[in-house]
Amino acid sequence: MRGLSILVGFHAVGLGLHRLGVPLPAGVLGLLLFLAALMTGVVKLKWVERTAGLMVRHMLLLFVPLLAGLTVMGDVLRKDALALIASTVVSLLAVLLTTGGLANLLLGDVVDAKPGDATID
């Protein structure tokens, strides 16, 4: 419960800052503050590790209600179908290839640390 309270708390602070007029999204503000708190040691990793791991691992569950909403979006999807499909596919390929290519150039010589030094869970 402590882990969840901390995450909910940071999100609430993000919401508050956003309402006060900070132009970044609430979740991103909460994330940046949380990251700063982890780096300065204000929040200890072990307080949040389990809850955060659980949430990140099962984030797909949280998308289900939104994705089910597609069933009532038929009109919007039909009207701009071409734009939506073209934009999705072209942009995906462009990002994959430019990011992959640039990363190959800049990060292609990186030798990995031992696996298992840190894990996501």
Partner: peptide, 22 residues
């Protein structure tokens, strides 16, 4: 469930911190 996407965004700080260190 949809609301929890907010705190879940914050939770992304943990992999970012861990992978950032690594």
């Amino acid at each position: 469930l949809t609301y929890l996407l907010g705190p879940a965004t914050v939770a992304l700080g943990v992999p970012m911190y861990l992978q950032g260190m690594r």
